[in-house]
Structures are given as structure tokens and as C-alpha cells.
Design a protein around this nucleic acid. Structure first.
Lengths: 332, 332
DNA sequence: CTGAAAGCGCTTACAG
DNA sequence: CTGAAAGCGCTTACAG
């Protein structure tokens, strides 16, 4: 079908029937007789008629589009969560617009303002680091006041009253720490490059709790991603260490490398547990024991929640927790 | 500002000025006097007026939205290419809709049909494996006939006359092979899990060319991702091998593992070159020599191309090649 | 310089 | 059962 897409108006002049009748027929209205319905549907198919979504959106006030606002897609957690979101959404009549904030508050605010009027029906968001630090949440409440649904996942703000999907970070870390303690480790170090994020704080608390319960001193090393390896190496050079927990991918990989360079054996001398993707865990030497966040499931749950929220227009906000699990491999 | 977004109509009744005047004032038309312009702009700001993008889109026939249709976002190449696309797009007044085909032809076709009428102005696409196999390209030509711009990257169809961003796969492989030959390797094996893709075929040709020139026999092992390790191990167990090139991430990781399990040393006994992300390359033991595709640059170029194409409405299609480079690390 | 009118492509009360 | 009219929120010729 060359040329631009055919419209109801054009169809109307072809068929000699009014636009309203055509619209109703194509939407299978009971008002229209089966005979004309059939005629219209056939002609529409012949001309490959596709309703203009923009026009439908303007009329209905719904766009069937959801914004996914996340810090990055390089991070395997977000990549896989996005996959989970997309998988669920693609089974509905919604589309997703993806916006990457790169941890910038300004970018996040701009995105919300840009999309809130007419472009999307709701937002799935993992809050940027900068927004968490600035504690500036007006862009969330503004769009909610304008009737848009909001669901946060992983990076969540307690004080904003929206849908939430999280993981049990506190418990996951406390259990992982207990596992190390159970295998006779005493000098367990925590390495983190995400101490500024709420998730990082939660995880750290879980570690502290388990260590306190066991009566062991806590050692918490915090650094940016670039220097994590050096920080770890430095500590290793003059302290006893028989266990390390990496709180995020950068910390985990840095820890492995630092131990390797120090000449110690994993897991004989030092056991390591970390956060990396399944695929990477399998390809490290030795394979890394990981805390698995089930990112796909988290994304899926967030998508399901926002679709339900938009469809039901209900104001009550759900909260879902997807538990992390420990996948024990060669490093512990 | 509680309640729903304010419209020109509401602004009009507040200010006692016609809708047309307000529209012109906000679009800074020279037709409007500075005095009223100022009054209107101030009031609009006070009420946090945001133009309804859907209405603007319907009127103008432009949506300022671009579809990015890719097989996956788990694959680090596509994740990083998407990052490159998003980075450029976010500096313009365009948005991106992301759709993941999971290598399914049906999903790809559905996406193009769904978005072609009114939702997006153009498509950036990396063609799915199934579409390449079926050689069924009508969904591309249809949207182009409807006036939408199309830019393909990485996964490209020669016979479709659209914008294209590719890499020099043939040359990159032939150079990588020559590098191994230059360091006295003779028995160089190619391992691939992407032999069904055009990129895979191109790369393989580059390898064959270099081996033929050197007068060495080619050995090409093809497998799905799941069995690549076993295929490689099997070959290693009864043949001389002093070099391996992995044509994709799965093949590269499988090759490393198979060599390791065979007890041979990398790079002393067997040199390995592969395709994995920079980050993963650094965290493998030994660090992997890689062919670096510059995915960010590729995504960036594709995004720039489609924005230019939409803005200029020109029909002439560009073709850009972003060269891959060899990053030599410990494995070769 | 300002405003009334038409129109983008639809849907949906309301008449007939 | 079919159609004319209004309207979603804008922009832009065209009048005045």
C-alpha cells in the first residue's frame, strides 16, 4: 500500500458510508448491521487500515504508553529488569518509552515533566542516585497529582506514596553473612561502591546485624567504582581477611581481583560472595557465589503493577517484595 | 499544581484572551505584541502550563518519537548501542520507544505495524535473526512507503534501501587472524554461535581470507550457545590448536573455558581473541584480547542519522562504517 | 495586533 | 440501523 496511511475519512468516501458508521463498525459496535460491518471490515483490511494511535490517544486521554525511567541499561540488573518489564508489557496493548537518567536528578525531572502531559499514562522508575541524595521528589508527586500512575522498583523512596517493588536487601545480606560465618569465617569485610544509595545502606545493615549477632567486628570499605580495587588491596595487605562480600558488581569484581593479586586462594584463604549477573558469575575463575536479585521477576512485577494501576484507576498502592536468593558457587 | 494539566482553553478563560493569541504568544510569534506576550507567558508559567504533546503531534503529523527495535538488551553490544542512541537522542527534542524482538520475526513485524501509524516518526532497527533467515522485509518497506525514516545498524539488510550503520566485520576478522598468524600461530580455529547472522558470515569470510592468504587450513566450528563449550572441548581433545577466535560473546567465553579445562595455558599454548564487553574482558583470567566494536559510537551514529533524516525529510540514504579495533590483552 | 474558523483523525452522545 | 455534530488540545491560514 504505497503513500501514507489511509484514514477513516478516505475510507468513508470510498465506501459511501459516514465516518461514524465506519468507526463503529471497526470497533465492532452492536449498533451496526452485520452486512455493513462485514463490507467495511473487508475494505479496511484491503487498504490495510491502521487507526491513528495519536488521534485515539487525544480523544480518549489515554496513550497506552508507559515510561520506564532508569539510571542505565549497562548495569546487568537494570538490563534484565527492563527485559522483564518489556516481556510483560509486550503481552498487553501498551508500549514503553525508555529514558536513561545516568543518575542525574536534572535528567530525571526533565523526563517526568516532558512525558507527563499526554505522552504516557504512567511511569516505572528506579530513582537516580542524585535524586536520592537531594531528597527532591516533587517531580514524582506532581505527575501523580496529574493522574499518572507511578511504580518504583529497586531504587525506592519510602515517603512517596506510589506502587513499589523491592527486594529484601537487609535479610539477603544478613543471610549471606551468616553463610560465611557458618563456614568458619570470622574476618569478613564488606566492600561497597553504592554506599550512597538506599539499597546499599539496607544491605550494609543486614551485614552489620549478622556480624553483631555473631560477635564479630564489622569492616566496611566504601569507595567509588574506580578505586575499589586499590582500597581492597590496601586493606588486604595489612589485615587478616577470610571473607569478603561485594555489595555490587564493581565491588565484587574488584574484590576478586584484589584477592587474586594478593596471592591468596579463593575460597581456601578467602571466601567471596558478590552481586554480579548469572552469566558473569559462571565465567569468573573461580565461579562466584552470588546474591541473586531476580531482576527479571522484579521488572515483571513492576510492569504488572503499573498496568493494573492504570486499568483500574485505583488509588491504593501496592508493595511487592521479590526475595533475593543465594547461589553458591566455587568462590565460597 | 493539583488536578490535571491546564490547557490553552482554560488559560484563555483566565486571561480573557483568545486561544489563538495564547498559542501564538507561547510559540513566540512576531504577530503578538510584547505586552500581551509577557502577560501570557507569565500566567502560563504560573499555572505550569505544558503543551499536550499528543495534540501537537496530531496537528503536525510529527510525534518526535523514534522507535528502537532491537533483539535484546542483555547482550552488552546492544545495551551499549542503546546507550549511545539514548545519549544522542536525549540532546534533541525526540524521545525513544524501545521494543525488544527476542529475535522473533513476528514480534518485529507487529512492532513496525503497531508504531507506524502516528506513534513514531522513524525506526532504528537491528534486524532479528529470524527475519534474516526468512528474508521477509515487507514491514521495512511498508513503513518507508508511509513516509517513515528507517536506519539499520549492525544487523543490516543490503537489499533494503534505508540508512545503515555497520562495522567492518570482514576486515576486523582478517586483521585479528593476521595478528595471530604474526605471532607464529598456525592452527587457528574459529568458533561461532552466530553463523546464521549476516554479521557472522562476514566475520567468517574475513578469517577465511586471512588463513587462505597465509596458506593455512581453516577450521570453523559452529554451534548454538549452549553446546559451544562441548564442541570446542571435543575438537581440542584430538587436534592441534594454537589459536582460537570466538566470533561472539558466547563463543568467546566457551572457548576460554574449554581451553582452561583442557589443561592448556593461555596464551602460551593457545592464544584466544574474542568478542566480549570491555568490562568482561578485564575481569576474565587472563584478560581477553578482544575485537572492540565501539557499540556506543555505532548507536550514536545511527541516532544522528535518523534525526537528520527525519528533519531533512531527504530521501537519500547514508551508509556509515564504524571500524572495529583490536584491544590486545593477556590472552594473546 | 487580536480573534474566529477550520482541521489534524478519531469517538460518542444524540437525532432521525 | 445510519449519520450529523461536537469535541479531545492544539496550530495556522485568514479576517478584521
Amino acid at each position: 500500500m504505497p503513500g501514507s496511511n489511509i484514514t477513516l475519512k478516505q475510507l468513508s468516501s470510498i465506501l459511501g458510508v459516514s465516518i461514524s458508521t465506519i468507526s463503529k463498525a471497526l470497533n465492532d459496535s452492536h449498533e451496526i448491521s452485520d452486512v455493513t460491518k462485514k463490507r467495511i471490515v473487508e475494505m479496511a483490511k484491503l487498504h490495510n487500515y491502521q487507526p491513528n494511535k495519536i488521534a485515539v490517544g487525544l480523544k480518549s486521554g489515554k496513550t497506552n504508553t508507559i515510561a520506564v525511567v532508569i539510571p542505565s541499561v549497562q548495569n546487568s540488573f537494570f538490563a534484565r529488569a527492563l527485559y522483564g518489564i518489556e516481556s510483560l508489557i509486550s503481552e498487553t496493548n501498551f508500549n514503553i518509552i525508555v529514558c536513561l537518567t545516568k543518575e542525574s536528578h536534572a535528567k530525571e525531572v526533565e523526563t517526568f515533566n516532558m512525558l507527563s502531559n499526554g505522552v504516557v499514562d504512567g511511569f516505572i522508575v528506579a530513582v537516580s542516585e542524585e535524586t536520592q541524595n537531594l531528597q527532591s521528589y516533587d517531580h514524582f508527586t506532581n505527575v501523580m497529582e496529574n493522574g499518572k500512575s507511578v511504580v518504583m522498583f529497586d531504587r525506592v523512596i519510602d515517603s512517596v506514596n506510589c506502587g513499589k517493588v523491592t527486594t529484601n536487601d537487609f535479610t539477603a545480606l544478613s543471610e549471606a553473612t551468616q553463610t560465611l560465618i557458618g563456614s568458619e569465617r570470622k574476618h569478613i569485610v564488606l566492600l561497597s561502591t553504592i554506599h550512597k544509595l538506599n539499597v546499599g545502606k539496607q544491605r550494609t545493615q543486614g551485614y552489620i546485624k549478622a556480624m553483631n549477632t555473631a560477635g564479630f567486628p564489622t569492616v566496611i570499605l566504601e569507595s567509588d567504582a574506580e578505586h575499589a580495587g586499590a582500597v581492597m588491596a590496601d586493606y588486604l595487605s595489612s589485615n587478616p581477611v577470610d571473607g569478603i562480600i561485594g555489595l555490587d558488581t564493581d565491588a565484587s569484581l574488584s574484590a576478586l581481583k584484589a584477592v587474586r593479586l594478593s596471592g591468596r586462594q579463593i575460597p581456601k584463604d578467602v571466601a567471596v560472595i558478590g552481586y554480579v549477573s548469572e552469566r558473569m558469575a559462571h565465567n569468573l575463575t573461580p565461579e562466584l557465589t552470588t546474591i541473586n536479585q531476580h531482576s527479571y521477576t522484579i521488572g515483571n512485577a513492576a510492569a504488572r503493577m503499573i498496568v493494573e494501576s492504570i486499568r483500574s484507576k485505583s488509588k491504593e498502592m501496592q508493595q511487592v517484595v521479590v526475595s533475593s536468593t543465594l547461589s553458591v558457587r566455587g568462590s565460597s
